[in-house]
Design a protein around this nucleic acid. Structure first.
Length: 478
RNA sequence: CGGGAUGUAGCCUAGUGGCUAAGGCGCCUGCUUUGGGAGCAGGAGAUCGCCGGUUCGAGUCCGGCCAUCCCGACCA
């Protein structure tokens, strides 16, 4: 601990790794590409789970658990799906010391095992909709890994729903995208763009993929969550039919949607600074830390008073007290700042004499003195302010880094020598055009915003000069 | 899978082929301290990534292997 964090200006990726390791969110494990999520990191995940799970329940979903191991043949039933995931699969070939008759894949996602079960559970329209979510780990063999952002094994939630009609499934897809947007903005203080993915970026096996996309401080985009309209692809692959209200036999309409521990990486990269982690209060495992400042001669008095305040505050806040005798106040300040605790309460002899405490906010470093009896009310207000300000700062950052280049030359300059960020430009809808942009600049279409077709009317593609079909948002991405 | 870098105590680093592998941080014990990363004294902690070779002698030279990180092609 107490080690230097590489400044962002020197190396953004070193800065990120330093924060994850030093704030004790995660550590490298013995297996390449996999990581240990330490208690401080897992607490963040628990908060994410709690918030999202509540929203899933409110929208009618229930949790279940499906197995880790999937027969290899299941993956092969949906052609695009298997093609998309084949390079990332880990396969179990032996069990109990013997070679298995059929290899088992470790789930990269659970559509196939779930739809094999839905076939058993769905016979009639009365069985629909079926709205199930699971919290689980999944495995995708990654060649290039980064703590939280891309690891071989990661934790996520995957919702899998079955519906009577196409319209109902499409509504569900957008409803859950909206849940993700709300969660990102209100809990994570992370402004996100929503929209549909281009063909080349969509999920293997989906008819349409929607996503929330956020902009990180290094001006690269991060896909923070996806929601897929699966059409009848999996219902047909697994022969899931139901008897309709008109007594006809129909294939079921499906969605799936997920967010992962990548969200932890997003929240780190969006808000933190060169002193360490900065967490939005609603997500912070510890909202407040109380640091008594004492000398030997007044230790009992100061710590006693601090403990009294602590007992009062703990009924309202997620709070810790640091009355360790060996570390100096300055050391503690720096340490708790590195851990990202939003509000610090300092209580020393001078404060006690004046009947006050000193409050310091993590995001700006500002300190203020407030009468002790008003501390709780002021802390509550401060936490709200910090939550709002973090979001607002991130939103302004995104606005300032969203560009509208008029020519392809300007566009290329933006990514090749320029600052990067989002670029909103007319696009002809051709995958070849998209591929050319990627080759020239490494930027890809992050999202086609809702309503973009109308905005594109009458415009010409920035690359090909052909009539534009979409207004596309490009960025380099993680 | 290509390119680059690095493996010496928990972490960071020093170490001309030659004596018992050195220092800082951290850790443990005690004392002293505490309003922005304190001080003193003592202490524990190392098959120098692994295997082989050269040599009277290898942390150091040679070969192979392994691992990790960083940069590129593929991805929540």
């Amino acid at each position: 601990m107490a080690e230097r964090i590489t400044p962002r200006s020197e190396s953004y990726s070193d800065w990120y790794v330093d924060i994850v390791l030093q704030a004790q969110l995660a550590d490298y494990s013995p297996v390449k590409g996999s990581m240990v999520i330490r208690p401080r990191g897992y607490a963040l995940w628990e908060h994410i789970q709690r918030g999202l799970d509540g929203m899933f329940k409110e929208t009618g979903h229930t949790n279940a658990y499906f197995p880790l191991l999937i027969p290899e043949s299941f993956l092969k039933k949906e052609a695009e799906h298997v093609e998309g995931f084949a390079p990332e699969l880990a396969v179990v070939t032996h069990g109990g010391g013997e070679e298995l008759d059929e290899p088992l894949v470790i789930r990269p996602t659970s559509e196939t095992i779930i739809w094999s079960m839905y076939k058993k559970w769905i016979q009639s329209y009365r069985d629909l909709p079926l709205l199930i979510n699971q919290w689980a780990n999944v495995l995708r063999w990654e060649k290039r890994t980064r703590l939280f952002l891309r690891t071989t094994e990661f934790l996520w939630q995957e919702g899998h729903t079955a519906h009577e009609t196409e319209q109902e499934a499409r509504e569900e897809t957008l409803r859950m995208l909206e849940v993700y947007r709300t969660f990102a903005e209100e809990y994570m203080a992370l402004p996100v763009l929503t929209g549909i993915k281009s063909e080349s970026e969509k999920f293997a096996g989906a008819v349409a993929t929607y996503a929330i996309e956020a902009l990180m401080q290094d001006n690269k985009a991060l896909q923070a969550g996806t929601s897929h309209f699966l059409g009848q692809n999996f219902a047909k692959a697994f022969d899931v039919q139901f008897q309709s209200r008109e007594s006809t036999l129909e294939h079921v309409w499906a969605t799936s949607w997920g967010v992962s521990t990548r969200l932890i990486g997003a929240v780190i990269m969006a808000h933190s600074d060169d002193k360490g982690l900065v967490l939005p209060p609603r997500l912070a495992p510890t909202e407040v830390v109380l640091v008594p400042i004492f000398r030997n001669k007044n230790k009992d008095q100061v710590v006693g008073a601090a403990r009294g305040l602590f007992d009062e505050l703990r009924t309202q806040f997620r709070i810790e007290i640091d009355d360790d005798e060996n570390n100096s106040p300055g050391w503690k300040f720096a340490e708790w700042e590195m851990r990202g605790v939003p509000v610090r309460v300092e209580m020393g002899p001078r404060d006690i004499e004046n009947g006050q405490v000193t409050l310091a906010r993590r995001d700006t470093g500002e300190k203020e003195a407030v009468p002790t009896e008003q501390a709780a009310a002021r802390i509550r207000a401060l936490l709200d302010e910090i939550q709002r300000d973090l979001f607002e700062r991130a939103r302004v950052f995104r606005e300032e880094n969203t560009h509208h280049p008029a020519t392809y030359e300007e566009f290329k300059a933006l990514y090749n020598d320029g600052p990067g960020g989002f670029a909103v430009v007319p696009w002809d809808g051709d995958a070849a055009t998209e591929a050319k942009v990627k080759e020239d600049t490494k930027a890809t279409i992050r999202v086609l915003p809702f309503g973009n077709e109308e905005d594109a009317a009458g415009k010409t593609c920035i690359v090909s000069g052909k009539p534009a079909k979409h207004m596309a948002v490009f960025a380099k991405s993680y």
